[in-house]
Design a binder for these strands. Structure first.
Length: 184
DNA sequence: TTCTCGATATTCT
DNA sequence: GAATATCGAGAAA
């Protein structure tokens, strides 16, 4: 189902909740991978000390200040990529980190990128694992999800999903923000 | 099952 | 020089 730009232009926390249950479709070399989002985190520059955008615009985070519905991909810890979806109106920084998903279709492609030794439950349960499984790199930074273009498509899920709100993972600031959302 | 630690580029102090 | 929106291997328990 089509997603409107106004969906992404909402408050980042709201988008993070509503992205749960949504489906990512990745086309790679004629094959299709389909995953369902199960874990997200909101990062809002304006009032969030843990956000990359909190101290202003830089070469890395400038996508967060751009158009809602774009992808914000960054390289971290010297070896991993993280995939976010840009939120809030243009010039207002915000993004939702996609932390985890469950596999619906395309195990062959996922195994190709994640390797054969990994257990099934560990294929997509982390932001770095997810980008590796879907072969998402910096070339996807600023990719427009609203274009509904072939390599990467986002579709809404079945509707309301029950979730739990917790502290975000791997941060030291703003630990009291319960801006991580996990499906039950 | 849980803990510790190394890898390693970019950003921050 | 230190920290980081991480992961996986190996050690400890």
């Amino acid at each position: 189902m089509h997603i409107d730009k106004s969906f992404f232009a909402q408050h980042t926390v709201e988008v993070a909740k509503q992205l749960l249950g949504c489906v990512i479709i990745r086309h790679w070399q004629g094959q299709e991978v389909v995953v369902r989002i199960t874990e997200t985190e909101a990062y809002r520059g304006a009032d969030d000390p843990a956000s990359h955008a909190h101290r202003g615009i830089t070469a890395r985070n400038r996508t967060m200040f751009g158009s809602p519905g774009h992808l914000y991909v960054y390289f971290t810890y010297g070896m991993h990529h993280c995939m976010n979806i840009v939120t809030e109106p243009e010039h207002t920084p915000g993004a939702v980190l996609i932390r985890g998903a469950e596999l619906i279709q395309g195990i062959e492609v996922v195994r190709h990128f994640r390797g054969t030794k990994v257990e099934d439950k560990n294929l997509l349960n982390g932001p770095g694992k997810l980008t590796q499984a879907l072969n998402i790199g910096l070339e996807f930074n600023e990719y427009d999800l609203l274009s509904n273009d072939s390599p990467l498509i986002l579709e809404v899920g079945a509707g309301n999903v029950s979730y739990q709100a917790t502290e975000r993972i791997g941060i030291s600031k703003a630990k009291d923000y319960l801006w991580r959302f996990v499906t039950h």
